[in-house]
Simulated scan of single mutants.
Amino acid sequence: MPVNGLPPYNSQNIFARILRGEIPARKIYEDEFAFAFHDINPQAPTHVLVIPKGAYCSFADFSATATEAEITGFIRAVGKIARDLGLEAPGYRLLANTGEHSGQEVAHFHIHLFAGRPLGRMIPG
Rank of each mutant, 00 (worst) to 15 (best):
S11N: 10
H108M: 06
I123P: 00
E32N: 11
L49Y: 06
S102Q: 05
T67A: 12
P118V: 07
L95W: 00
A77F: 02
V78C: 13
E88P: 00
L113I: 15
G120P: 02
G73V: 04
P8R: 06
E100W: 00
I123S: 15
G125S: 14
Y56W: 12
A89V: 04
A16S: 15
G21S: 13
P45E: 07
A69W: 00
E100N: 07
H108L: 05
F114M: 10
E105G: 08
G54W: 02
T98E: 11
G54I: 04
H101P: 01
A34W: 00
A66Q: 06
F33T: 14
N4I: 01
A82Q: 09
Q12H: 12
Y92P: 02
G125P: 12
P8Y: 00
E30V: 03
T67G: 15
V3Y: 11
A55L: 06
R117Q: 15
G116E: 12
K80D: 10
G103C: 05
V78H: 05
L87M: 10
E100I: 06
A36W: 06
P2G: 09
P45L: 04
R20S: 15
L95Q: 12
P52Q: 08
G73C: 09
I71K: 15
L94N: 11
A89I: 00
H101N: 14
S63V: 02
E22A: 12
L119W: 01
H101W: 01
V78W: 01
P24D: 14
D84V: 00
P2E: 12
V78G: 01
R76G: 05
F15G: 10
Y92F: 14
A64Y: 01
I28P: 04
A16D: 12
H110S: 09
H112L: 04
N10Q: 13
N41G: 04
V3K: 13
E22G: 09
N41V: 10
L113R: 07
G86Q: 06
R83H: 14
G73D: 11
E70K: 06
G125A: 14
F35D: 06
T67M: 04
A55C: 11
P2W: 01
S102R: 05
A55V: 00
A89R: 11
N97P: 02
Y9I: 03
I18H: 11
V78D: 02
N41S: 15
A34S: 14
P45D: 12
Q12E: 15
Y29M: 07
T65L: 03
I40K: 12
A44Q: 05
A55M: 07
E70S: 11
L6I: 13
R93P: 02
Y56C: 02
V106F: 05
G73N: 09
H101F: 04
I28V: 15
D31C: 10
P90R: 08
T46K: 11
Q43C: 02
R17L: 15
H112N: 08
E68D: 10
G91A: 10
L113S: 10
E105Y: 00
A69M: 04
L119E: 03
M1H: 09
I14N: 08
G99P: 00
I75Y: 13
L49G: 03
D31G: 09
F35L: 15
S58V: 05
D31T: 08
F114E: 01
R93L: 09
A36K: 11
Q12Y: 03
V48N: 06
E68Q: 12
E30H: 07
G91S: 08
H112G: 07
S11I: 03
